[in-house]
Amino acid sequence: MSVTITDVEKIAQLAKLKFSEEEKTKLQKDMNQVLGYIEQLNELDLENTEPLENINETENVMREDEVKPWLSTEEALKNAPSKTQKFFKVPKVIEK
């Protein structure tokens, strides 16, 4: 399987990124290399191997359902480039 320029454009669009034609070609090459590397895995017999979903083998790390306040509204909004007293402000969005 090899990555086309259209694939690169689709992935860029999904990631909300924009690239020049030159960058796209470079990305196409990089992606093909990564895929080629992963392709090697297909040569292995993984019939009886469980997928590794997490490099951490522990299970059931959970916490009690107890409230602990952390940030005030003021602190939460501190880094926001645009805000009102209580809300984050973003450019108008309609479609979801």
Binding site: E66, V67, W70, L71, T73, F88
Partner: peptide, 17 residues
Amino acid sequence: CKCSTNFHNSPNSNVCP
């Protein structure tokens, strides 16, 4: 996270990093 789920709290008060 440990933030409250209370529906009636003031906007952006049940938030954490």
